[in-house]
Every structure is written in C-alpha cells, then in structure tokens.
Design a binder for these strands. Sequence first.
DNA 1: TGTTAGCACTCATGTTTTTGGAGTGCTAAC
DNA 2: GTTAGCACTCCAAAAACATGAGTGCTAACA
Lengths: 343, 343
Amino acid sequence: MEQLDGRKKKILRAIIKTYLETGEPVGSRTISKFTDLNLSSATIRNEMSDLEEMGYIHQPHTSAGRIPSDKGYRLYVDALMAEKDEEIAEIKGLMIEKTDKMEKVLKQVVKTLAQNTNYATLISAPSFSDDRLKFIQLSRLNRLQLVVVVVTAGNRIRNEIIDLDEQMSDDTIFKLNFLLNNSLNGIPAAEINLGMIAQLKEQAGEYGSVVGSVLDAVANVIQVDEDLEIYTSGATNIFKYPELSDSSKASEFISTFEEKQQLVDLVKETMADEESTGIQVYIGDEAPIKTMKDCSVVTATYELGEGIRGTIGIVGPKRMDYENVVDSLKVLRAQLDTMFRKT
Amino acid sequence: MEQLDGRKKKILRAIIKTYLETGEPVGSRTISKFTDLNLSSATIRNEMSDLEEMGYIHQPHTSAGRIPSDKGYRLYVDALMAEKDEEIAEIKGLMIEKTDKMEKVLKQVVKTLAQNTNYATLISAPSFSDDRLKFIQLSRLNRLQLVVVVVTAGNRIRNEIIDLDEQMSDDTIFKLNFLLNNSLNGIPAAEINLGMIAQLKEQAGEYGSVVGSVLDAVANVIQVDEDLEIYTSGATNIFKYPELSDSSKASEFISTFEEKQQLVDLVKETMADEESTGIQVYIGDEAPIKTMKDCSVVTATYELGEGIRGTIGIVGPKRMDYENVVDSLKVLRAQLDTMFRKT
DNA sequence: TGTTAGCACTCATGTTTTTGGAGTGCTAAC
DNA sequence: GTTAGCACTCCAAAAACATGAGTGCTAACA
C-alpha cells in the first residue's frame, strides 16, 4: 500500500477524535459532515476502505462504522496529535496544601487526577535509590531496650527497637554510636558485607551481638524501601466506559488496582523503559499487564534529583483523551517537582 | 398479629436458609419439599402469607416467591441461627508467618479472609489510644538539622526532621534532651497545653523556638495516629452476587472500599457500639454507611490489651452465610490475639 | 378447625419475529 | 477524481408470544 497522504491523515485523525468522544463506531457520513474538507460520504468511504486495508482502523462487524485499531491509536499518539502549545494550564482545584506528610500529598494527587480525568490513576511514592547511610543513633529506651534510628541519604528515617539480653551502660552506648557512625557513614547499605560485619563485631568487643541486631535493623530499613508504595484512585471510573464495564472485565481490572502487586511491576517496567520525554503511552497489548489489554496506559516519571524518582500513571479505555492526559501529566510532574524540591 | 409459633419459626428459618444459598426468591413448593415437617405447599402458603403480614418476609413482586426482609434476617441472626458447637475450625491456609511488619500481617489477613469467605473484607490496624510520651531524643543530623525521635506508650516510634536557623552545640542539644524528657515523660500528648509549652520555652532560654518545633513534631506524631490505617481486600467479590453487581451499585460500593474514608467511620462506629461478644451484625440500613444499604456488615473487635484495639469487618450481600462468617471472625480474632501478644 | 387439592390468574423471563436504520460496497454518471 | 444512487447487510430495539413458577382463593376433606 502507498503511504498515507495528507487527506488520509486528516480523515484518520477525524475518525479517532470522534470515536474518542462517542465510543461508538464512526461512519462515513459523520466524517463528511464534521470535517472542514468538503467531501461526500462516498469519497470518505473509499478512503476509509483504504485505511482499513492499511490496518489503521477496522470494523467490529460488516455494515458498522469504523473504530481505530491499536496501530491507528499509535500513529495518532506519535504523529497526529496536535502539539498543543505548552501552556502550563493549572489543573483546576488541585489545591495541594503544603502537607508535610508525603503520603497525604500523594493520595491527594491521585485522587484529584482521577476526578479530573475520569480515568483510573496511580502514583508510586518516590523510591530512594541512594541508600548511603548518613547517620545512626542508638538510644536507651528502658533497661533492656534500645531504639536505633537510621537515616539514609535523602533523609529517609527509619527506626527499630532492639531487645537486649543484659543492661548496657550509657558509656557503652555512646561508644557504640561512635563506632557505628565512624565505620558506616557514607556507605551504601547494599555494600555492607560479612567481612565488615565481622570487623565491627570484633571492635565492639563484648557487645558484638548488639552490632548484629543493629545491622539487622539497617537491613530492614533498606528492605522496606525496596517494594515501593503505590497509591491509587478512581478505579471505578471504568464504569463510565461501556466497553470496559462488563462485569467480568471490570472485576479483573479493579482487582488489579486493589491488590497493587501488578501495579508495582508496571511501575518498574516504565522506569526501565525510560524515554527522553519521560512520558510513555502503552496501547492495548503493549502494556505489561494482561488485565489491561483493552486499555491504554499513560505514565510519566517524575524526578526529585539525586536518583529519587516516582511514576504517575493513568489507565483508561483505548479511546482515552490522549492530548489532555499527556498534558495533565506534564503539568502534574512539573508541580510535583517544584513541590518536593522546595519542601 | 399473634406471636411466632414453632412452625412459623421453622418455616422462616427454612426460607432464609434456602435463600442464602440460591439468592432467588423461594416459593412455597420448595419449602414443602425440603423441610422435614410434612406440609403441603398450600399450607406453607398460608403460613407465608402470615409471615409476610408480620413483616419477616416479602415478595419482590406479586407472583414471585418470598425473600427475607431486614427484620427477618435480624430475627435469624439473633435467635434462629443454630449455635454451632464452638469448634475452633482452623481457617485453612491462613498461614501467617511471623512477619515482623504488622502491616504485612494485616494485609495478609484481610486477603486470606476475603478469599476464604468470598466477601469483601477490611481490617483496621490496632489503634493505640494510650499516647503517653515515653521518650524523646534529639540528635544532630548535620549542621542545621536535627532528628527528633518520639516514643509513646506501646512503643510507637515516630520521627521528624527539624530545620535550625543557626547551629547548636552538642551541649545544648544534650541539655534540651534532658529538659524535654524530664518535663514530658509519662504525659499524654493530648494534655500538653499552652501553659506547659510556654513554661518549657522559658526554661529552654534562647532555644525556645526549637522547643516549639519539637512540640510540633510531637503533635504530628499523635495526629498521624488519629486517622487509623485500614486495609481492605476482595471488594470485587461482590460481582459474585448478582443482586449487587449492577454496575452503578457496584461502582459505589467499590469506591467506598477504595477511598477508605467511609470505612474509617464504620470502624469508629463499631468500636463505639461495643457489645458483650464483640461481634456485631449490621443488616441493610443498620450499617452506618449508606452505600451499603443493600449489604450486611459483620464486624469483630480484637483486643491487644492496654486499650489497643482494632476491627475486622466482612461486607457481603444480605444473604451472607452468617454462621460461617461469625465463626470465622471468632477464630481470626483469637488468632490475632495470640499472635500479637506473643510478638 | 386445620389441612389439602384444584384452579384461575399474575408476572418475570426467555425466545422468536419484525422492523428500522445506520452503514457499506459497488456502479454509473458527472 | 468525485459524487449520487441503490441494493444489501446486520445490529439493536420493539413487539409478540410462550413458558412456568408462584400466588390467592375456594371448596372439600379428616
């Protein structure tokens, strides 16, 4: 088949846009009416026939209108989508107050995003890939318990309680603190190996076992950070799209959002797929989650510098309003950026 | 109307039990066949007519079978439900390993419960009503930042980072630590009032502003504990019950589970409604959440002693298998009890 | 007096038929 | 190359019809 000429592109674009709005197969008549290029429905039909042959659209059944194929959407996203001038349109009503708890901010963000877009949304908390130890502090809680506070780069703080076998003097605690900080500061947690541990234990003398516990606590800190936290909202928005709301599909879809494990995979995937713009569009089968084969997924990666990154995602029907979604994500990413950096 | 005689009770019980299984309106014929009391369908019809007049059952439309009314369910739960002999049936496959993170345990618990019962489930993390301060520790993180660690009764630990305007000597930090611990230990956070704060600031002299920040941090700790954490699972199980899976109802229902705020209210309510057994059954409108007016909610409160309590809840159709659910909750509560106390 | 058989009636549900209309492909004319 | 016209297809909604479960009522029976 020949290439897409200008007219074909225009027609394809028109088909997709109308389909995005209505969700119904679109016929030649509609196009002939609503585009400015004055062509009769018959001409359109001919062109549509060509487009179908090329695989950009298809008919759900003979004598129905056409709907875009995955390939069609792909072309639309990649080339046909009018580059809207980069107006940083305020997402209305976003109103993130400077809540100090990041968790609350993120919850608020997904929720607003879901409400504004009418799609299902998700966001992953920034994952701190830099886990160098910055500070360790042991303090006595009571006779037989210590609190250990661990701070890693990026000011992530964690704590644990350690049970002692026998009492420890304040002086010993002080010395241990000194020892631990001296030996471990600036070292990535992942690099703490057996040799190091042995050496530390030796230096700690009779309190070697406590060192073990402390290092266990450190290990816990790191481990917790590893499975990233994900917040979701608006999963039930899919009921607004008839093509997705049949109950078995809906059930699967919503389960995915409820259980979250698969979303973690999705996020990891998108982070791996890094691209220049940081915005990715998965159409249908392209998405790494099988339950979303009838959907499109748009993700954006936000950066907080120093390798601290997270992902925002929007999941909706294939006929989602790509332009708007991509814009929203751009804006949101910018806002998250400034918000977190400032704080 | 006269009282319920024995036969009416038996019939009502039979109606409810069959309805629980099938979810379809049950007719006189079915009852006459499946009960041991040998009565013709005609007789049953007469009795049913009476029962309807008394409000225990009703017809969805004329010439359909009968289904239990809320009042009917209520009677069933209160009086008609056969007391199963208290066999502590192991919930199969529960397999809670001793994960040290309580969060993971709870997530695992709701998930298993949802899978076993086929209803939607929720659990609230134990809320620590005792918020007396046990320990406060300031440590220098770097030149202009302090870490403040706060431990309250029940060994809940929280921390925050405080920004300083100017550097502080180690000695000052030490003194502040001493001052704070001396004045605040054992005091419920809620009771820290303005007078106390003023006094502390005065004692701290030129570092009064730091005291302010520390107390803010303390306030944060408490506040975070206030809105309790809730984990849910199996919201999509409702699709297994046709009477609930029409898409607008389902959408509302699942939203409730997704947004969680309303569930918090539910939990608070049940905690207030405390009862001897600790198990509550809300049928239809009785539940404090309007989106659940077509459901039944069964909740159990688990205790960890010292006023530390949480709630487990199961939400399903009115025709839920009450006996089983109540049993499951009893067992689970017992297990949570031992598990957390041991740890 | 309580129980039962019988019968006419109701109404939700499911199946088949009919109809309307939107859309197509093709052809012939412009 | 474009367009009007026409026959054809096929889905969706409406209509028509059949089915059967279930009821209420009455009259007969023990």
